[in-house]
Design a protein around this nucleic acid. Structure first.
Length: 273
DNA sequence: CGGTGGACCTGCTGGC
DNA sequence: TGCCAGCAGGTCCACC
Protein backbone atom coordinates (compact mmCIF):
# COMPACT_ATOMS: atom_id res chain seq x y z
CA UNK A 1 0.00 0.00 0.00
CA UNK A 2 1.91 2.89 1.27
CA UNK A 3 4.83 4.73 -0.24
CA UNK A 4 6.16 8.13 0.80
CA UNK A 5 3.06 10.14 -0.23
CA UNK A 6 0.66 7.78 1.53
CA UNK A 7 2.74 7.70 4.72
CA UNK A 8 3.09 11.48 4.60
CA UNK A 9 -0.69 11.81 4.11
CA UNK A 10 -1.23 9.76 7.24
CA UNK A 11 1.37 11.76 9.15
CA UNK A 12 -0.30 15.05 8.27
CA UNK A 13 -3.75 13.80 9.11
CA UNK A 14 -2.74 12.11 12.32
CA UNK A 15 -0.66 14.97 13.71
CA UNK A 16 -3.49 17.27 14.83
CA UNK A 17 -5.57 14.31 16.03
CA UNK A 18 -3.01 12.83 18.40
CA UNK A 19 -0.52 15.56 19.32
CA UNK A 20 -1.07 16.62 22.91
CA UNK A 21 -3.22 13.58 23.67
CA UNK A 22 -2.36 11.34 26.58
CA UNK A 23 -2.25 7.57 26.09
CA UNK A 24 -4.60 5.86 28.53
CA UNK A 25 -4.01 2.28 27.51
CA UNK A 26 -2.80 -0.04 24.80
CA UNK A 27 -4.66 -3.14 23.71
CA UNK A 28 -2.90 -5.72 21.55
CA UNK A 29 -5.47 -8.05 20.07
CA UNK A 30 -3.17 -9.96 17.75
CA UNK A 31 0.60 -9.72 17.89
CA UNK A 32 1.33 -11.85 14.85
CA UNK A 33 3.18 -9.49 12.54
CA UNK A 34 6.31 -10.50 10.62
CA UNK A 35 8.20 -9.36 13.69
CA UNK A 36 5.78 -10.16 16.52
CA UNK A 37 4.43 -7.18 18.47
CA UNK A 38 5.70 -7.05 22.05
CA UNK A 39 2.72 -5.96 24.15
CA UNK A 40 4.90 -5.26 27.22
CA UNK A 41 6.83 -2.73 25.10
CA UNK A 42 3.73 -0.98 23.84
CA UNK A 43 2.27 -0.82 27.34
CA UNK A 44 5.21 1.34 28.41
CA UNK A 45 3.51 4.13 26.47
CA UNK A 46 0.69 4.25 29.02
CA UNK A 47 0.49 7.66 30.68
CA UNK A 48 2.73 9.33 28.09
CA UNK A 49 1.67 12.32 26.04
CA UNK A 50 2.10 12.33 22.26
CA UNK A 51 4.46 15.14 21.33
CA UNK A 52 4.41 14.84 17.56
CA UNK A 53 4.74 12.62 14.50
CA UNK A 54 7.63 12.52 12.10
CA UNK A 55 8.21 10.52 8.93
CA UNK A 56 11.45 8.99 7.70
CA UNK A 57 11.18 7.06 4.44
CA UNK A 58 8.03 4.91 4.86
CA UNK A 59 8.32 4.85 8.65
CA UNK A 60 6.19 6.91 11.02
CA UNK A 61 7.81 7.98 14.29
CA UNK A 62 5.39 8.90 17.06
CA UNK A 63 7.30 10.73 19.78
CA UNK A 64 6.06 10.75 23.37
CA UNK A 65 6.85 12.53 26.62
CA UNK A 66 8.13 9.23 28.06
CA UNK A 67 11.17 9.62 25.80
CA UNK A 68 9.87 6.63 23.90
CA UNK A 69 9.05 6.65 20.21
CA UNK A 70 6.55 4.36 18.56
CA UNK A 71 8.00 3.24 15.24
CA UNK A 72 5.35 2.20 12.71
CA UNK A 73 5.75 0.71 9.23
CA UNK A 74 2.61 -0.09 7.26
CA UNK A 75 4.09 -2.80 5.05
CA UNK A 76 1.75 -3.47 2.12
CA UNK A 77 -1.65 -3.27 3.76
CA UNK A 78 -1.18 -1.49 7.08
CA UNK A 79 -3.66 1.17 8.19
CA UNK A 80 -3.35 3.65 11.04
CA UNK A 81 -6.26 5.91 11.87
CA UNK A 82 -8.21 7.59 14.64
CA UNK A 83 -11.76 6.54 15.46
CA UNK A 84 -14.25 7.31 18.20
CA UNK A 85 -14.17 4.70 20.92
CA UNK A 86 -17.00 2.27 20.36
CA UNK A 87 -16.88 2.45 16.59
CA UNK A 88 -17.03 -1.09 15.23
CA UNK A 89 -13.77 -2.90 14.66
CA UNK A 90 -12.33 -3.08 11.21
CA UNK A 91 -11.16 -6.49 9.94
CA UNK A 92 -7.58 -7.34 10.98
CA UNK A 93 -7.50 -4.62 13.60
CA UNK A 94 -4.52 -5.69 15.69
CA UNK A 95 -3.78 -2.81 18.06
CA UNK A 96 -5.92 -0.15 19.74
CA UNK A 97 -4.28 2.75 21.61
CA UNK A 98 -6.78 4.59 23.80
CA UNK A 99 -6.42 8.37 23.90
CA UNK A 100 -7.69 10.77 26.57
CA UNK A 101 -10.31 12.39 24.33
CA UNK A 102 -12.54 9.37 23.97
CA UNK A 103 -10.95 8.25 20.75
CA UNK A 104 -8.58 5.45 19.70
CA UNK A 105 -5.53 5.30 17.51
CA UNK A 106 -6.01 1.99 15.69
CA UNK A 107 -3.70 -0.21 13.63
CA UNK A 108 -4.92 -2.82 11.15
CA UNK A 109 -2.87 -4.90 8.73
CA UNK A 110 -4.37 -7.62 6.55
CA UNK A 111 -1.14 -9.15 5.31
CA UNK A 112 0.85 -8.58 8.52
CA UNK A 113 3.93 -7.18 6.81
CA UNK A 114 3.81 -4.08 8.99
CA UNK A 115 5.97 -3.23 11.99
CA UNK A 116 5.17 -1.77 15.41
CA UNK A 117 8.01 -1.18 17.87
CA UNK A 118 8.80 1.06 20.78
CA UNK A 119 12.29 2.56 20.81
CA UNK A 120 14.12 4.96 23.10
CA UNK A 121 13.73 8.36 21.44
CA UNK A 122 17.41 9.16 21.83
CA UNK A 123 18.42 5.97 20.04
CA UNK A 124 16.25 6.05 16.94
CA UNK A 125 19.06 7.06 14.66
CA UNK A 126 20.99 4.01 15.83
CA UNK A 127 18.23 1.61 14.85
CA UNK A 128 19.54 -0.44 11.92
CA UNK A 129 16.31 0.06 9.96
CA UNK A 130 16.65 3.83 10.18
CA UNK A 131 20.41 4.03 10.00
CA UNK A 132 20.66 2.41 6.60
CA UNK A 133 18.21 4.75 4.87
CA UNK A 134 19.30 6.97 2.01
CA UNK A 135 18.43 10.65 1.56
CA UNK A 136 14.84 11.91 1.54
CA UNK A 137 13.86 12.84 -2.02
CA UNK A 138 11.99 15.94 -0.82
CA UNK A 139 14.93 17.19 1.24
CA UNK A 140 16.07 20.41 -0.49
CA UNK A 141 19.65 19.57 0.46
CA UNK A 142 19.56 16.68 -2.02
CA UNK A 143 20.37 17.53 -5.62
CA UNK A 144 21.03 15.84 -8.93
CA UNK A 145 24.76 16.33 -8.56
CA UNK A 146 24.81 14.23 -5.37
CA UNK A 147 22.97 11.38 -7.08
CA UNK A 148 25.24 11.67 -10.09
CA UNK A 149 28.31 11.40 -7.86
CA UNK A 150 26.88 8.49 -5.87
CA UNK A 151 26.31 6.39 -8.98
CA UNK A 152 29.56 6.70 -10.95
CA UNK A 153 30.68 3.33 -12.22
CA UNK A 154 27.59 1.50 -11.01
CA UNK A 155 25.53 -0.64 -13.29
CA UNK A 156 22.36 -1.12 -11.29
CA UNK A 157 19.22 -0.45 -13.37
CA UNK A 158 17.63 2.88 -12.44
CA UNK A 159 14.31 1.28 -11.45
CA UNK A 160 16.07 -0.99 -8.93
CA UNK A 161 18.06 1.99 -7.65
CA UNK A 162 14.90 4.02 -7.01
CA UNK A 163 13.27 1.10 -5.19
CA UNK A 164 16.27 0.61 -2.90
CA UNK A 165 15.68 2.67 0.26
CA UNK A 166 19.44 2.76 0.85
CA UNK A 167 19.83 4.88 -2.30
CA UNK A 168 16.75 7.11 -1.93
CA UNK A 169 14.23 6.70 0.87
CA UNK A 170 10.50 6.27 0.50
CA UNK A 171 10.08 5.59 -3.22
CA UNK A 172 8.09 2.46 -3.99
CA UNK A 173 6.86 0.71 -7.10
CA UNK A 174 4.19 3.19 -8.18
CA UNK A 175 6.22 6.38 -7.90
CA UNK A 176 9.40 4.83 -9.29
CA UNK A 177 7.46 3.90 -12.46
CA UNK A 178 5.74 7.29 -12.66
CA UNK A 179 8.93 9.32 -12.16
CA UNK A 180 10.78 7.33 -14.84
CA UNK A 181 7.91 7.75 -17.27
CA UNK A 182 7.78 11.51 -16.68
CA UNK A 183 11.56 11.66 -17.15
CA UNK A 184 11.44 9.49 -20.29
CA UNK A 185 14.12 7.20 -18.88
CA UNK A 186 14.04 3.46 -19.59
CA UNK A 187 13.70 1.50 -16.33
CA UNK A 188 16.68 -0.71 -17.22
CA UNK A 189 19.10 2.16 -17.87
CA UNK A 190 22.20 1.64 -15.70
CA UNK A 191 22.55 4.43 -13.15
CA UNK A 192 26.15 4.99 -14.16
CA UNK A 193 24.98 5.98 -17.63
CA UNK A 194 22.72 8.79 -16.45
CA UNK A 195 24.31 12.21 -16.82
CA UNK A 196 24.29 14.97 -14.23
CA UNK A 197 21.60 17.01 -16.00
CA UNK A 198 19.39 13.96 -16.39
CA UNK A 199 19.73 13.23 -12.66
CA UNK A 200 18.55 16.77 -11.98
CA UNK A 201 15.54 16.32 -14.22
CA UNK A 202 14.73 12.90 -12.78
CA UNK A 203 14.87 14.23 -9.23
CA UNK A 204 12.64 17.13 -10.29
CA UNK A 205 10.06 14.79 -11.82
CA UNK A 206 10.24 12.50 -8.78
CA UNK A 207 9.56 15.43 -6.48
CA UNK A 208 6.78 16.58 -8.76
CA UNK A 209 4.91 13.30 -8.69
CA UNK A 210 5.44 12.82 -4.94
CA UNK A 211 4.14 16.32 -4.17
CA UNK A 212 1.14 15.94 -6.47
CA UNK A 213 0.31 12.62 -4.84
CA UNK A 214 0.54 14.14 -1.37
CA UNK A 215 -1.73 16.99 -2.48
CA UNK A 216 -4.25 14.41 -3.74
CA UNK A 217 -4.17 12.55 -0.44
CA UNK A 218 -2.21 9.56 -1.77
CA UNK A 219 -3.04 6.69 -4.12
CA UNK A 220 -5.78 4.24 -3.19
CA UNK A 221 -5.64 1.17 -5.44
CA UNK A 222 -7.00 -1.31 -2.93
CA UNK A 223 -6.53 -0.65 0.78
CA UNK A 224 -5.00 2.74 1.39
CA UNK A 225 -6.94 4.93 3.82
CA UNK A 226 -5.79 8.12 5.52
CA UNK A 227 -5.83 8.96 9.23
CA UNK A 228 -9.57 9.54 9.12
CA UNK A 229 -10.39 6.43 7.13
CA UNK A 230 -10.77 8.14 3.75
CA UNK A 231 -9.34 7.14 0.33
CA UNK A 232 -6.76 9.15 -1.64
CA UNK A 233 -7.34 10.32 -5.21
CA UNK A 234 -4.00 10.14 -6.97
CA UNK A 235 -4.91 6.83 -8.66
CA UNK A 236 -6.78 8.92 -11.26
CA UNK A 237 -3.55 10.72 -12.12
CA UNK A 238 -1.32 7.68 -12.64
CA UNK A 239 0.04 7.76 -16.19
CA UNK A 240 1.90 4.46 -16.43
CA UNK A 241 1.53 2.29 -13.32
CA UNK A 242 -0.88 -0.64 -13.78
CA UNK A 243 -1.59 0.33 -17.41
CA UNK A 244 -0.21 -2.74 -19.21
CA UNK A 245 -1.52 -3.03 -22.80
CA UNK A 246 -3.16 0.37 -22.56
CA UNK A 247 -1.96 3.36 -24.59
CA UNK A 248 0.76 5.60 -23.21
CA UNK A 249 -0.84 8.93 -22.32
CA UNK A 250 1.90 10.85 -24.08
CA UNK A 251 2.68 8.99 -27.30
CA UNK A 252 -0.11 6.36 -27.59
CA UNK A 253 2.35 3.43 -27.84
CA UNK A 254 1.32 0.34 -25.89
CA UNK A 255 2.43 0.24 -22.26
CA UNK A 256 4.55 -2.78 -21.35
CA UNK A 257 4.98 -4.70 -18.13
CA UNK A 258 8.31 -6.34 -17.29
CA UNK A 259 9.62 -7.79 -14.03
CA UNK A 260 12.63 -6.25 -12.28
CA UNK A 261 13.82 -7.32 -8.85
CA UNK A 262 10.69 -9.44 -8.63
CA UNK A 263 8.37 -6.46 -9.06
CA UNK A 264 6.27 -5.30 -11.98
CA UNK A 265 7.66 -2.37 -13.94
CA UNK A 266 5.34 -0.50 -16.31
CA UNK A 267 6.91 1.64 -19.03
CA UNK A 268 6.38 3.03 -22.48
CA UNK A 269 8.76 1.42 -24.99
CA UNK A 270 8.56 4.45 -27.28
CA UNK A 271 9.06 7.43 -25.02
CA UNK A 272 11.29 5.87 -22.37
CA UNK A 273 14.84 5.36 -23.65
C1' DC B 1 29.01 -5.26 -7.48
C1' DG B 2 24.19 -6.86 -9.06
C1' DG B 3 20.50 -10.26 -10.26
C1' DT B 4 17.01 -13.74 -9.16
C1' DG B 5 14.03 -16.25 -6.28
C1' DG B 6 11.93 -17.04 -2.18
C1' DA B 7 10.22 -15.96 2.44
C1' DC B 8 6.84 -13.56 5.23
C1' DC B 9 0.82 -13.15 4.88
C1' DT B 10 -4.14 -12.60 3.17
C1' DG B 11 -7.38 -11.62 -0.35
C1' DC B 12 -8.94 -10.60 -4.84
C1' DT B 13 -9.22 -11.30 -9.89
C1' DG B 14 -9.33 -13.45 -14.27
C1' DG B 15 -9.08 -17.44 -17.06
C1' DC B 16 -10.56 -21.92 -17.73
C1' DT C 1 -20.70 -21.85 -10.83
C1' DG C 2 -16.21 -23.14 -8.91
C1' DC C 3 -11.33 -23.72 -8.72
C1' DC C 4 -6.73 -22.11 -8.83
C1' DA C 5 -2.75 -19.66 -10.57
C1' DG C 6 -1.10 -15.22 -10.39
C1' DC C 7 -0.73 -10.94 -8.54
C1' DA C 8 -0.65 -7.04 -4.94
C1' DG C 9 1.64 -0.31 -2.74
C1' DG C 10 7.38 -3.78 1.27
C1' DT C 11 11.40 -5.64 3.24
C1' DC C 12 14.91 -9.10 4.10
C1' DC C 13 17.80 -13.16 3.12
C1' DA C 14 20.28 -16.82 0.69
C1' DC C 15 22.43 -17.92 -3.33
C1' DC C 16 24.48 -17.40 -8.19
Amino acid sequence: MPELPEVETIRRGLGPLVTGRRILGVEVRDKRLREPIRPEQLRRLRGAEVEGIRRRSKYLLIDTSARLTLLVHLGMTGQLWVADRGRPRRAHEHVVIQLDDGRDLRFADTRRFGLLRVLRSDRIDLDPRIMGLGPEPLDPALDGAALFRATRGRRKPIKNFLLDTRSIAGVGNIYACEALHRSRIHPKRPVGRIGEEAWGRLLGELRGVLNEAIAAGGTTLRDFLNAEGEVGYFAFSLRIYDRERKPCGRCAATVRRIVQAGRSTFYCPRCQR
